[in-house]
């Protein structure tokens, strides 16, 4: 593309290499002046390098002991610097660029605030894979999603008749945003919180989407009583199935019935 007024497109490449990338996301990567890659698998990074001659990994923004907020700002600034230089910039993120990933949202917001065209192209997220692999339809019984630490830090009203999905359980309880994992003591607190709404025998699923076609997703079922000792990685998501039946709101049903009856009477009168 010719240099002119810069632009930013943040696209998702999906979870599995070669399986999930959309036509528009791929074309955006291929046609960009420069691609900044924030992916989780080195093979995916190499894959992106085959799509564009100027793919720059955002991994060097990280460093041991470095403030992750600084890292975050550097990622945004790296992309924006090229936008300001008049280039068409693509940020390629694994999964969906707007789901559990703040950098794309921030970069787009900054670009737009500075008058540049900025766009997000959705991708297949871990949540999408979860529904497919575990056979869950969130519309059937409802589905609550929380970041695991936020779930612990704040009082939430859990509905045990719906699915509960906790993300980033591997770092549940981490207040420093510096740890790569938290230990059994933190998980024990998470379990204590869950036991307010679920029995200890309740079986949850530890899920990890497959990122390569030669790998299988992790779908390990364990009772809550064994969660403290389970292997929880950064990419592990915990799915808590409903523990109680739906409770019908009879008062609401009665009010709706009265409305229905009134509507029928109006139809008859007309």
């Amino acid at each position: 593309m010719a240099a002119g007024k810069g632009s930013l497109s943040c696209v998702g490449v999906g979870m599995m290499l070669g399986a999930h990338i959309g036509a528009r996301a791929r074309a955006t990567i291929e046609q960009a002046d420069v691609v900044f890659a924030a992916v989780s698998d080195p093979l995916v990074e190499l894959w992106l390098q085959q799509m564009n001659t100027d793919v720059r990994s955002l991994q060097p923004c990280y460093a041991e002991g470095k403030s992750r907020h600084d890292t975050y700002r550097e990622m945004v600034e790296a992309m924006l610097a090229d936008v300001r230089a008049g280039r068409h910039v693509c940020g390629a993120f694994y999964g969906h660029p707007g789901v559990f990933a703040g950098v794309p949202h921030k970069a787009i917001a900054v670009a737009r605030a500075e008058g540049f065209d900025a766009h997000m192209e959705p991708g297949v997220s871990a949540e999408d894979c979860l529904y497919a692999d575990l056979g869950i339809d969130p519309g059937e019984l409802g589905c609550q999603h929380y970041e695991a630490s936020q779930f612990m830090f704040y009082r939430r009203r859990i509905d045990p008749s719906a699915y509960l999905v906790l993300w980033q359980v591997g770092v549940a309880g981490d207040r420093t945003v510096r740890r790569s994992s938290t230990g059994p003591a933190y998980r024990r607190l998470l379990v204590e919180r869950l036991l307010e709404d679920y029995p200890s025998s309740h079986r949850v699923t530890l899920y990890e989407a497959a990122t390569l076609a030669i790998a299988a997703p992790r779908m390990e079922r364990v009772p809550l009583s064994r969660l403290v000792g389970a292997e929880l990685r950064m990419q592990t998501t915990m799915v808590v199935p409903p523990a109680t039946a739906l409770l019908r709101d009879e008062a609401m049903m009665e009010r709706i019935a009265r409305l229905d009856a009134g509507a029928r009477n109006e139809e008859v009168a007309a």
Binding site: S40, F93, F100, G102, E147, A148, S149, R175
Partner: peptide, 9 residues
């Protein structure tokens, strides 16, 4: 490789 996560706050 490192990944982005959303802040709990």
């Amino acid at each position: 490789m490192r990944c982005l996560i959303i802040s709990p706050e």
